[in-house]
Amino acid sequence: MADMTGKFFWYELMTSDPQAALAFYGDVLGWTSQPFGGEGMDDPYHVVSGSAGAMGGVMAIPAEAKDCGMSPWWGGYVGSADVDADAARLSAAGGKVMRDPEDIPGVGRFAVMSDPGGAVFMLLKGSSPDGMEPAPPMAQGHVGWHELYSGDFDRDLAFYTGQLGWTTGDAMDMGEMGSYQLVSQTGGTDFQSMTGGIMPRPREVPVPVWLFYFVVRDIDEAVAKVQAGGGQVLNGPMEVPGGGWIIQATDPQGAMFALVGGRSAA
């Protein structure tokens, strides 16, 4: 099995309406889903699968988070060999422990972190020794790109490369918006190895955040499904290097997400 230490490998939507979200993303991305644990619960955790297998989950916003004003949100889990040690190490490097390490019965041990600029991510060490295999590049319904709207570009870049072992590729000058730095979670430096980008947070984005790009077959078909399902396209379709097309959007409950895919009409 692949070593997922230091890499995003699981993605989770906390939402105000799990059933509506499952229907929306099932139509847009072709996901299948099944409840996990908690048989008979009003709000079970739903594991969602793309074309290459399970890749994330959908759950209701916990009551304590809702009381603190949490809005629907996509979060990502980074693999950890030792959650407690990594939480302490990342905190010493400028990150922050937002929720102390704890166990999830039957799943593993996790902690909620933020990077130096304030974007939130999670650490997770699974309880199963089998681990997970990463999906093939651009597998339908899986995450094909990771983009950080950074609250502190220089410190965040140093944090992820220095602490998680990510490598950098080219940096693209975006004028007034600053630099878009390509990064790889797999150790490569060529364009084909890149798995995401880090850029200064745009003014229209309210807080630093990780944005995940889910893979679709055709971007125009996906846009039509997003809009028909009650979502809102914020930007795009826009062509990006490598021949792909992207959009940024919000789902009907307000969670921000993004899509990447081909364009049959192009």
Rank of each mutant, 00 (worst) to 15 (best):
M132D: 02
G141R: 09
A158H: 12
W145Q: 03
G117I: 15
D115P: 08
M113V: 08
K96L: 13
M138E: 01
P116F: 15
M138I: 01
D156E: 12
D154F: 07
G131P: 00
F110M: 02
L157P: 14
A119E: 13
V143H: 00
Y149L: 12
S127T: 11
G141W: 10
L157T: 14
P136E: 00
R109M: 09
A111P: 09
R155P: 14
G126I: 07
G106D: 03
M138F: 06
F110Q: 02
G151P: 15
R155I: 10
R155M: 13
F121K: 01
I104N: 05
P101Y: 10
G95R: 07
S127R: 06
P136A: 02
V97W: 03
S150H: 11
L123M: 05
I104P: 05
V120E: 14
D156C: 06
D103F: 05
M138K: 00
A111W: 09
P134G: 03
G108F: 02
P105I: 06
P134V: 00
W145M: 03
H142A: 07
A158W: 12
Q140S: 11
G94E: 08
V97M: 04
D100P: 04
G141H: 10
W145L: 01
F121G: 01
I104W: 02
R155G: 14
P116M: 08
G106A: 04
E133R: 03
D156Q: 09
A119I: 13
D156A: 07
A135V: 06
L148S: 06
D130Q: 12
D156G: 06
L123I: 05
L124K: 03
P105Y: 04
P129H: 07
D156W: 11
F159Y: 11
G126F: 15
D152H: 15
G126K: 10
H146L: 02
P134I: 02
P105M: 08
H146S: 07
D100N: 06
P105R: 05
M138H: 01
S150D: 08
A158N: 15
G117Y: 13
V120R: 12
V97C: 06
P136M: 00
L157Y: 13
A119L: 13
M122G: 07
G126P: 08
D100V: 04
L123K: 02
V97S: 02
G117L: 11
G144V: 03
R155V: 11
L124R: 01
G118H: 15
G117M: 14
R99Y: 12
F110S: 03
L124F: 07
D100Y: 02
P101V: 05
